[in-house]
Simulated assay, not measured.
Amino acid sequence: MYKKISALVLAGVTTLVMAGCGSGSGGTDSAGTSGSGDKKIVMGFAQVGAESGWRTANTKSIQESAKEAGIELKFSDAQQKQENQIKAIRSYIQQKVSVIAFSPVVESGWDTILKEAKNAKIPVILTDRAVDSPDKSLYKTFLGSDFVEEGKKAGQWLVDQYKDSKDPVNIVQLEGTTGSAPANDRKAGFEQVVTDPKFKVIASQTGDFTRAKGKEVMEAFLKANPKIDVLYAHNDDMALGAIEAIEGAGKVPGKDIKIISVDAVHDGMQALADGKINYIVECSPLLGPQLMDLTKKVLAGEEVPARVVTEETAFTQEQAKQALPERKY
């Protein structure tokens, strides 16, 4: 009888040891913790939508980077509607995610939902676009481009191109989504540099960052304005739509109408290499790796900068030709 009891005890100990090895090899327990005792990170990400090639690349970067970082990603597409983003963020708060990240559709109207996240002790990281809340304690950091600087780069290229000309230069502008940070800031930055009275913005209207709307608005511009010298588009997709409209009107994009754009997605860079666009200011969508790094630092209690600016450049036709073969988006 003693030998049988000893054998049963030994078997039980062996089973426990084997179970311990199994959980220690990367599994999670019922509380969602790993074998090392680290709590699993769950990110709720509320995306603007899928309005452009840039946004598609941005989404892919976030999804792939979360997977590589071992972060569980709960993802929502707001279809460019603020109410959808607020609904998604509120859902993430109810689910008690570790962190919330989002790219705001517009700048205003976020204080209430951000206060809800703060009260729930869930840190928030802004990506790509900012909010205009005066209470900076409602989010930990803002990761993204300097849209004002992008507008300045676009404006400086224009000023340089026409520095020796005294003739008036008629400009039309395809703005991004009304009320969004990139639309507001790219317009403001451009205006800060393009101050000579010879430059006249004769028409400016939103194209919602989409190719279809860019084409539609450009067609209207062409019908209403017989002489257009320059198009400034707040993103490549609108510029590409405008190119279709310009060609449909029997004009040559890049020659009859010079085109300045922002983003530097693959299709835009190809149009630049082909001479249909004249200059593109880069706005990188590949924010995923930086976002995951910031997330881990925030959750570890580390100090992070209130503003993290992505490093970007700008492209001429020749530079686009050189960059295209290894372009990742």
Rank of each mutant, 00 (worst) to 15 (best):
D146I: 02
G151E: 11
K166L: 06
F147Y: 15
A188E: 07
D185V: 00
A181C: 02
D160H: 02
A154R: 01
A188T: 10
S165P: 01
S180Q: 07
Q156C: 10
D164K: 15
A183W: 03
L158G: 05
E150Y: 05
E175V: 12
K152C: 05
T178E: 12
L158H: 08
Q161G: 03
E150T: 06
E149L: 14
E175I: 10
I171A: 13
V169Y: 02
Q156D: 12
S165Y: 01
T178Y: 08
V172L: 06
I171P: 11
D167Y: 00
N170E: 09
A154G: 15
Q161E: 14
K153F: 10
E150G: 11
T178R: 00
L174P: 08
A154V: 06
A154H: 04
G176R: 08
A183N: 08
I171S: 11
R186Y: 03
V159K: 10
D160N: 14
Q173T: 13
A181G: 02
K166N: 15
D160A: 07
K166T: 12
Y162R: 05
W157G: 00
K163E: 09
K163A: 14
V169W: 06
K152P: 10
S180Y: 09
G155P: 07
F147G: 13
A181F: 11
D146T: 02
D185T: 04
F147R: 06
P182S: 06
K153N: 10
W157C: 00
S180A: 15
G151F: 11
L174K: 12
R186V: 10
D185Y: 11
K163Q: 12
N184A: 10
I171C: 13
K153W: 08
D160V: 02
T177S: 09
Q161W: 03
S180D: 12
N184G: 05
D185L: 14
L158M: 13
P168E: 12
K166A: 10
A188V: 00
G151M: 11
P168D: 13
G179P: 09
K187Q: 11
E150V: 04
T178V: 13
E150W: 06
L174M: 11
G179E: 07
L158S: 06
R186Q: 13
D167N: 09
N170P: 03
K152A: 08
V159S: 01
V159G: 02
K187G: 07
P182D: 05
K187D: 09
S180T: 11
P168Q: 09
S180I: 12
Y162W: 12
A181S: 15
D160F: 04
D185C: 04
V169I: 15
G155E: 09
Q173D: 05
V169E: 03
D164F: 04
N170V: 04
